[in-house]
Design a binder for these strands. Structure first.
Lengths: 148, 148
DNA sequence: CCTATATACTTCCATATGCAAGCAATAAGG
DNA sequence: CCTTATTGCTTGCATATGGAAGTATATAGG
């Protein structure tokens, strides 16, 4: 029917939809945060000084700057992140991971790793999982701040 | 850092975001339709008698039934799909692909296959693409109406 | 310096989407 | 038959998101 390339793309779209559904169901009840919010915190955790500008976060999360502004607001209210100005450039308003945020992201990451392992539990060998991760990594290569 | 399973999941999310961005940019200008609308038409094309109930479409597109209702409305206005009642069950309102819809989906599919090939143009061998498609197919297995 | 351009962020508006509620029709069980 | 539960679809409401416009700051070029 479809070319192999097209088939790969179509299946990636489907696999993504299934994964998002699965993770959303499991995660919200556990930590009260959406998957995207946890990813935001994970990017901060990985960044130097645990902080990133909203623009950098937007690039890493593949969303618009306005979305980052609105995602950060409730996280700031929950004291998971703080706001920090740059002394050299008054335009910058870094999003900084707090202590509480670090704790939460550690727990959420553990939950996510369990859920991820569950997805491959049946009918997958370790080399197959590694191969999938490797091939997918080539599709996202060249981006700053790869989490995985 | 992350377990291989978690890494695969994270990269899949990122790859999906990049692909959607790329396909949205290229497709809208070509045929005036969003990627999701083309996928809807492709599912109809593949279905017996070129028609599906809104519920079946929702499952295949991984969206809610209300979204299908609202996606079909403008396509019906454009005469890409029609509405057909079931003589046995008056609750069913099939979405049917029209002649014009078949033409459009053929053209759009060709565009999508070119775009898909573009994504893998550099640094990918045919076996690698096939392997990726195969592995991703295992994540979506068991679903009705696989397009690829 | 002064002006023009670019950047970071925020806010407004339009659109997309899921969920709950509602309606119509069918199916199931007495 | 009649009642109840189920199913397919639509609509109202709340939320999420991108893009355009607006503000403030920084940079580049005379």
């Amino acid at each position: 029917m479809a070319t192999p390339s097209f088939s790969a793309v179509l299946r990636l779209l489907g696999a993504n939809a299934r994964l998002e559904e699965r993770f959303s169901n499991g995660l919200g009840s556990l930590h009260g945060l959406a998957l995207k919010e946890v990813l935001l915190l994970m990017h901060l955790e990985q960044a130097p000084r645990h902080r990133l500008s909203r623009i950098d976060l937007a690039k890493r999360l593949y969303v618009s700057p306005s979305t980052v502004t609105r995602m950060a607001a409730p996280l700031e209210k929950l004291r998971m992140v703080g706001r920090e100005a740059d002394p050299r450039d008054a335009r910058l308003a870094y999003v900084v991971l707090t202590e509480a945020g670090q704790e939460l992201v550690a727990n959420a990451r553990a939950s996510l790793e369990v859920m991820a392992a569950d997805i491959f539990r049946d009918r997958w060998t370790k080399p197959e999982i590694a191969s999938l991760a490797d091939l997918l990594g080539r599709l996202t290569a060249g981006q700053p701040g790869d989490l995985g």
